[in-house]
């Protein structure tokens, strides 16, 4: 009898980083939408400058994405060892997804650095 990784873990390893990216993207969008006036002035949000907030947000999400990418990697290794062939497809896909989406979240630093808050 082979040991198959928990089903939830398989799903999580696949879907977490895309969802993290989406969440990050929507949050970043809402922050700028809420804190930038039409004239391009920065009114800040929750007392903090929105730029600080965006940097912080991006940093946290990059860390989280890297963590889940690693999780997917571990799950795929585990599945490869224990499960029948091709069953490691989902975590393997999740790992590549993780690499891509971590990179995409990381990219958000570039506009922040060049364009500033608004």
């Amino acid at each position: 009898m082979t040991v198959v990784p928990a089903r939830t873990l398989l799903w999580i390893s696949f879907i977490s980083t895309p969802l993290l990216w989406l969440l990050h993207f929507l949050l970043a969008y809402l922050i700028t939408e809420g804190s930038c006036s039409a004239a391009g002035e920065n009114t800040g949000i929750f007392g903090a400058s929105s730029l600080t907030l965006l940097y912080l947000l991006t940093f946290v999400f990059v860390l989280a994405s890297v963590f889940f990418t690693f999780l997917a990697f571990r799950t795929s290794k585990q599945a490869q060892k224990t499960a029948p062939s091709y069953d490691d497809f989902l975590p393997k896909l999740g790992f590549t997804c993780g690499l891509l989406f971590s990179f995409v979240v990381l990219l958000e630093f570039i506009p922040l650095a060049i364009l500033g808050a608004c």
Partner: peptide
């Protein structure tokens, strides 16, 4: 694509 993106942001700053 990265070069394109960076170039985009720089030109956006210039045109602001």
């Amino acid at each position: 694509l990265l070069i394109t993106a960076v170039y985009t942001f720089i030109s956006m700053r210039t045109l602001a």
